[in-house]
Structure formats: C-alpha cells, structure tokens
C-alpha cells in the first residue's frame, strides 16, 4: 500500500499540450468524429492567433449551431455559442460595443450560408471588422447528413438520396460580391497556408472570409462512398490547385472535381465604424466625437 502511494507521488514530467493555451482543456475530448476536418481548422486558427501574438483577452469567438458550431465552446477565449445562423449579427453587436476586440465567427456552411445567409451578405456589405471562418463539408452533419446549399450537384445526402440536383453556392464569390475585403479558400489539408490566411484575415480591417473545405467521413464520405476522411484528404491533395487571385466567378466546386484554392480577394475599403465616424463627422463636424466603443457607458 505504502509503496503504491509512493509510486503515485513519484515526480512525473508535466507535459503541456501545445494548444493548451487556447483550448478549454476541461471540455476536451471534443465531440467531433475522427478524421473530421474541423479539428485541423481549429489548429490553424490557434497557430494564426499564436503567430499574430494577440492579447487573447481581447479576442472573442462566436459560433452558431452544427458540428462547427461547437468550436466556440472549445476555445479558451470569450466565447459565444449562439443560435442557428445568428452568430454573425450577435458578433456584429459585440463588435460595435467593443471595437477594440478582435471578433471571429467560426461556423459551418449550413449555419452561415443557409439559415444565416442574409446576415452573412449584409455584414459583408457593411464591411464590419470581423473574420468569418466557414468550414464547408458540403452537408448538414450534426443532424445526420442532409443536403446543404453547398452540396455539389449529383452528390448524395440524407435528403437528396438520389443525388442533389440544385446549384450550390460558390462561397468566395458570394463573399466577394457582397463586399468582403479579404477572401480565401483552402482545404483542411493546407494547414500552414490556411493558418497564414486566417492570420491575414484577422489582421485585415473589415469583413474577411476564409472558406475551409473539410472532410466529413461519417456522413458526406459515407453517403457518397468516397471512403474515409483520409481518402478525402488524399483527394484534396491530388485535386486542389492553388490559384491566388483567381476570379471568384471561376472557382465553383463541382462534385469530386478540381478544387481551386488560394487567396482571391485582398482589397482595402473603410470598415463599418470608420464609415460611421466619417458619415457623422461630415454632418456634425467637431460636435461629433468619433465613436470608439469601450465598456460601460461611452
């Protein structure tokens, strides 16, 4: 008995997980399936935040509902798990109240682009200073693999059992035409390039958008007999083509076809609060005190 106690007390070298700084370790293990692409995307965000050297007290993360919607819950930041599709307007309010903070929305394609599509385009139009990371796995995964506005034509899902016959959204095109100042797409395979894009997106003043094509082995791959998540990663390896500056109109994703990745848009345009201040300054002159936010009463 005493021997056992002694054994237990033997000094063990404490090893910290490299992401412990940013993960809520008390909520790990996470709910994602093995070979899901969301985890690697979170890693890319962690790398980006680390490389940016930001004060993590001043970074907020928001998610909606779905598999990717759980991201906010696992990150050790001020984190908000909102309702389905509504993380962007919630983030917008938070951003207006605290413009000194970096606001990142991290959610899925169904959440951001289907039910939240209106918020997505309007917040891009306003060029509100926030970064939206969209994990696109072509399917509603948490509810069991239903067809999404991103499901490629002919791909099968739980509610398109004979193959999807609708036209899918091209997310970078949607973002760019709505007014986003930074638009990039990568796959879950391109971790370093993705991390770099997220870094640029966060640093960019205005509405920045990063799409991450990611494997869903449990549903999308299974329903379409595409093998495992690893097979999808191999597919990305063989079929992604990096084309920086490609015209977003030319980068539709067809079923099991080439995926064009890269940074497509990186332009300068005054963000929302700057416009708000300029608009009021124009009318009120010196009587108007530029809005800077801050906690409590302004």
């Amino acid at each position: 008995m005493s021997k056992k106690v002694a054994l237990n007390k033997a000094p063990v070298e404490e090893k910290q997980h490299p992401m412990e700084k940013i993960l809520r370790m008390d909520r790990i293990p996470h709910i994602w399936c093995s070979t899901c692409g969301i985890g690697t995307t979170v890693t890319a965000l962690a790398m980006a935040l680390d490389q940016l050297g930001l004060d993590l007290n001043k970074v907020a993360i928001l998610s909606g509902i779905g598999c990717t919607g759980r991201v906010a819950g696992y990150l050790k930041l001020d984190s908000f798990h909102t309702t389905h599709g509504r993380s962007i307007p919630f983030a917008f309010g938070l951003h207006i109240a605290r413009p000194d903070m970096k606001v990142i929305v991290f959610s899925g394609d169904g959440d951001l682009i289907s039910i939240g599509g209106n918020h997505f385009i309007h917040t891009a139009r306003r060029n509100a200073d926030m970064t939206v990371i969209c994990v696109n796995n072509f399917i509603y995964a948490m509810t069991g693999g239903q067809v999404a506005p991103t499901t490629p034509t002919t791909a099968r899902s739980a509610t398109s059992p004979y193959g999807c016959y609708e036209h899918p959204f091209n997310l970078p095109l949607l973002a760019a035409s709505s007014g986003a100042v930074y638009v990039a797409r990568w796959t879950a395979l391109h971790i370093r390039r993705l991390a770099n894009s997220i870094k640029e997106a966060i640093a960019k003043p205005g509405f920045s958008f990063v799409e991450v094509v990611a494997p869903c082995s449990t549903l999308y791959a299974r329903l379409n007999k595409l093998g495992t998540g690893l097979d999808l990663m191999k597919f990305y390896h063989d079929n992604s083509v990096i084309k920086h500056g490609a015209d977003p109109k030319e980068i539709d994703i067809d079923y099991q076809s080439q995926i064009i990745v890269g940074k497509f848009v990186d332009i300068d345009k005054p963000p929302y609060i700057e416009c708000f201040n300029a608009g009021n300054k124009r009318v009120f002159g010196d009587k108007f005190k530029p809005y800077g936010g801050g906690n409590g009463s302004n």
Binding site: F80, P89, F92, L94, I96, R98, H122
Partner: peptide, 21 residues
C-alpha cells in the same frame, strides 16, 4: 444600426449587451 431583419436586430442587441452597452 438598421439591420437586415428582426432576427439580426435581436441578436445584435444581445451581442452589444454582452459588450457592455
């Protein structure tokens, strides 16, 4: 802010409230 719809309005005021306003 005039929002895109009432869903956005309600969410935005929640976000701003958590932001201290």
């Amino acid at each position: 802010v005039q929002m895109e719809d009432e869903l956005a309005s309600m969410n935005a005021i929640l976000g701003a409230s958590w932001g201290g306003k």
